[in-house]
Nucleic acid binder design. Structure first.
Length: 464
RNA sequence: GGUGACGUAGCCAAGUGGUAAGGCAGAGGUCUGCAAAACCUCUAUGCGGCAGUUCAAAUCUGCCCGUCACCUCCA
């Protein structure tokens, strides 16, 4: 499999440290609000990566954190007059609901920053001991970015360009505390009324970047295979993580860096700070979670995606075609009497095309095309297929859609006796050419939540 | 100012040298008592524009136009 590595700006063959095992770290959300659709993108994309690697026979250790200490959380807690942990717990719960709704598998480990203060302080100490960190007069601890030779290697930015840029608002608070404007905080001294932990540098709390370095080291080791996140984390977050981890550990932090593109609104980046976002919850309440997941997979993960309601509706229709196909397969299996083994070959073809697409930097759009080609084959050949090939087709279909994490809302309900009786009555009415009665029964079935469709093999029941 | 993306049909989108996948929407047809689903056919002589390289360019090169992102809150 090839993966575009932000570090080298090239598609590279993905080779794990230990054969058959992938250690993946994904930067998760800061839980200060409901997540928006943009936040859903890395959740879906990297869950799909994980599913694919697993499907190809690998063991995947998937760590995705929750940031539960942060300026915004502190502000909200202050405004609401409740402890920060309460705010974090509330939105973490909502985040988990959304992630589960999107059919993201639970991470192997989901570490919280506030539960890793010891590990964070330990890595801060390593950084200071090795001369990369220093304690400022107020108790902040800063990292000497310039001292780390590799600084900028991920974002391909040069420090001098950064500091000489025409960016306004260069100096935020703490500028006078730093030795150099490019230095960044790994530990922040607590201000009045803020949550804090005791440390050798006084009461304080972790800087934003340090938690990921600390939690990755604890749960995945000093060098990990793949580090993932949104494009906007490349700089400074991931650049700083590299600086911290590589200086503290004395070895490479991550071999591969994957970054998903943005989700835009009217061609502009969606973000909470720009206040132009749609929450996953709102969309899910209207359309369900699945179209959101499908939407994320409809284009390449590194391309920008423009969100509109129309596109979500189109995704609903696309999914319906997939569900119908799956229903058709089940119906065909039930009635199987044909002799054609064609679908077995078609299944192998679909699998081949699917794997080639996914192997090429997780090309989910092409992978979906492979599935839709297969859908046409299934719909065409299923009626005359033999049972064995139908079974193969069904297994393949489930495998492929399973890797993408879609088609997880199938209603596998057995029709109750009453429904079956009504269907029989309708068939009898039809035979007697009493169509008014037949339609009446169909309406009745519909009210019970069952649709009946007439096919060459007899009536087909579909749970609605 | 520095850096990096992107521009393919009504909409979304794949395709990085060999003659334009797939989905949604639309039109016509087949099947059907009707409906639904499905299947078939049609919908970009052309991939932002102009040059160039090549037997061959959406794909490579140059210039231009347009859009976006990052440059210490951000998925």
């Amino acid at each position: 499999m090839k993966i575009f590595n932000t570090l080298t700006s090239e598609k590279e063959e993905l080779i794990p440290i230990k054969e058959g095992e992938y250690r993946i770290y994904v930067c998760g959300p800061t839980v200060y609000n409901f997540i928006h659709v943009g936040n859903a993108r890395p959740i879906v994309v990297f869950d799909t990566l994980r599913r694919y690697l697993t499907y190809r026979g690998n063991n995947v250790i998937f760590v995705s954190n929750v940031t539960d200490i942060d300026d915004k959380l502190i502000t909200i807690a202050k405004n609401e007059g409740i402890p920060m942990q309460e705010v974090a717990a509330r939105y973490e719960k909502e985040y988990l609901t959304d992630a589960a709704g999107l059919n993201a598998l639970p991470p192997t480990v989901m570490p919280r920053a506030t539960e890793h203060i010891d590990e964070i302080l330990s890595i801060v100490k390593d950084i200071i001991d090795k001369g990369y960190g220093y304690v400022a007069k107020n108790g902040d601890v800063y990292f000497r970015a310039r001292k780390f030779e590799g600084y900028g290697k991920l974002s391909h930015l040069v420090l001098d360009d950064l500091s000489s840029g025409n960016r306004e608002l260069r100096s935020d608070m703490g500028e006078d505390l730093k030795e150099d404007s490019s230095d960044f905080a790994v530990w922040k001294a607590a201000k009045e009324g803020e949550p804090y932990w005791d440390s050798p540098y006084g009461k304080g709390r972790p800087g934003w970047h340090i938690e990921c370095s600390a939690m990755a080291r604890k749960h995945l080791g000093k060098t990990i295979d793949i580090h993932c996140g949104g494009q906007d984390l490349v700089f400074p977050h991931h650049e700083n993580e590299i600086a911290q981890s590589e200086c503290a550990n004395g070895c490479e932090f991550a071999h591969y860096w994957m970054h998903n593109g943005f989700l835009n609104i009217d061609n502009h980046k969606m973000s909470k700070s720009a206040n132009n976002f749609f929450t996953v919850r709102d969309i899910a309440n209207k359309f369900g979670y699945e179209p959101i997941r499908y939407f994320m997979l409809s284009g390449h993960y590194r391309s920008p995606l423009n969100y509109t309601v129309e596109l979500i509706e189109a995704c609903v229709s696309s999914l319906e075609r997939l569900y119908n196909c799956r229903e058709n397969l089940d119906f065909a299996i039930e009635k199987a009497s044909g002799e054609s083994s064609m679908l077995g070959e078609k299944a192998a073809m679909a699998k081949g095309k699917f794997n080639i697409a996914m192997d090429d930097d997780l090309n989910t759009a092409d992978a979906l095309a492979a599935i839709f080609d297969f859908v046409r084959d299934i719909n065409t050949y299923a009626p005359e297929a033999n049972l064995e090939s139908l079974q193969i087709a069904a297994d393949t279909f489930d495998d492929l859609t399973g890797v993408l994490g879609i088609l997880y809302n199938r209603k596998k309900e057995e029709a109750p006796q009453k429904v079956l009786e009504l269907v029989e009555k309708r068939t009898a009415a039809k035979r007697a050419r009493d169509f008014a009665k037949a339609d009446q029964i169909r309406d009745k079935l519909s009210a019970l939540g069952w649709a009946v469709e007439d096919t060459a093999q007899g009536p087909k029941l579909v749970k609605k």
